[in-house]
Amino acid sequence: MILAPLLAAVLTAGPIAPPEEPASKAPPKVGEKAPDFRLPELNAEKPVTLSKIAADGPVVLLVLRGYPGYQCPICTRQIGAYLQRADEFKSAGARVVMIYPGPEEKLQTFAREFAAELKLPDGFTFLLDPGYSFTNDYRLRWDAPRETAYPSTFVLASDRTVSFAKVSDSHAGRTKPEEALAALKAMKK
């Protein structure tokens, strides 16, 4: 007797909803809101959130390869090019945030080695991504031997909306500072 009412309820309830779709398998795209994150700064005790950084103006988010077993010379050149244009990023009101991903063990040591020669001006921030939490959330994990993350650049408005996105599927193909500066200029129009 109990089975009949239960069967009737199931049959009249309509179709069963499919399970929720998994999160996007792609990095944030232009027009989407970039996920917030909380990552440690290289030489600071308190973590930093993207929402707090972005609240002060646009953000250029540079995702480096981190430490895939060596310090990436292309990352070093890319950062050098951005540092040479630091005044232009400051004039655009933008913060440049570099993210250095890798496994938790020894990541801080490797990041310090990478950043030892860098003189970061105001408006530049160097963050660590221990254990790939950010890299995985942004779907940038390059899960192959001696790899960490796809080199990527995102230009974000103060509400974290992506106005420019470039993800390289190789070691080259990096975003040049002039591309990021053009994206910042286009945001003001």
Rank of each mutant, 00 (worst) to 15 (best):
S91G: 07
G173D: 10
T161H: 08
Q108H: 09
E117W: 01
D129I: 11
K106N: 13
N136C: 03
A172C: 03
V10R: 03
S152L: 07
A111F: 08
A26D: 07
T135E: 01
A34D: 08
E117K: 02
F134H: 06
S158W: 00
A165V: 04
P130N: 06
R95G: 02
T135Y: 05
R77S: 07
T153L: 03
P35C: 00
P73C: 02
E178W: 05
F37P: 03
P27M: 00
Q78K: 08
E88I: 07
P5M: 12
K176A: 14
A54E: 07
G66Y: 11
P22T: 06
M187E: 03
G93V: 08
R77D: 13
V10G: 08
P15M: 14
E113S: 12
G80E: 14
H171R: 14
R85P: 02
G93C: 07
T12R: 12
R139M: 07
A8G: 15
P27E: 09
V63L: 14
A8F: 15
A94G: 09
A13V: 00
V162K: 00
K119S: 11
V162R: 00
I53Q: 11
I53W: 04
A157C: 06
F134E: 06
T109Q: 15
T148P: 03
E179A: 08
Y150K: 12
R139H: 11
G102M: 06
E104R: 12
Q71P: 12
A94E: 02
A165W: 06
R160H: 00
F89P: 04
Y82P: 15
S170Q: 05
K119W: 05
S163P: 06
H171G: 14
L118W: 15
D87S: 10
C75P: 13
P40F: 02
A9E: 11
P19M: 01
A44R: 09
V30Y: 10
T135P: 00
P27A: 15
F126K: 07
A116V: 03
W142R: 09
K106W: 12
T153V: 04
S91M: 02
G93E: 08
K185A: 15
G173H: 04
L140G: 12
G173S: 03
H171M: 14
A157Y: 01
A186D: 03
Y82R: 12
F114C: 15
P47H: 02
W142Q: 08
H171Q: 15
N43E: 14
D137H: 09
P35L: 11
T125M: 13
V60Y: 13
E32G: 12
C75F: 02
A172I: 09
A165F: 07
L62A: 02
L3G: 11
A183E: 10
L128C: 00
W142I: 01
L39Y: 00
A144K: 15
P19F: 09
A172L: 12
G123T: 05
Q78C: 06
P58Y: 10
T161E: 05
L83T: 02
P47I: 08
T76S: 12
D129K: 05
S51Q: 10
V162P: 00
K188L: 01
K106H: 13
E147D: 10
R77Y: 11
G173T: 07
F164V: 06
Y82H: 09
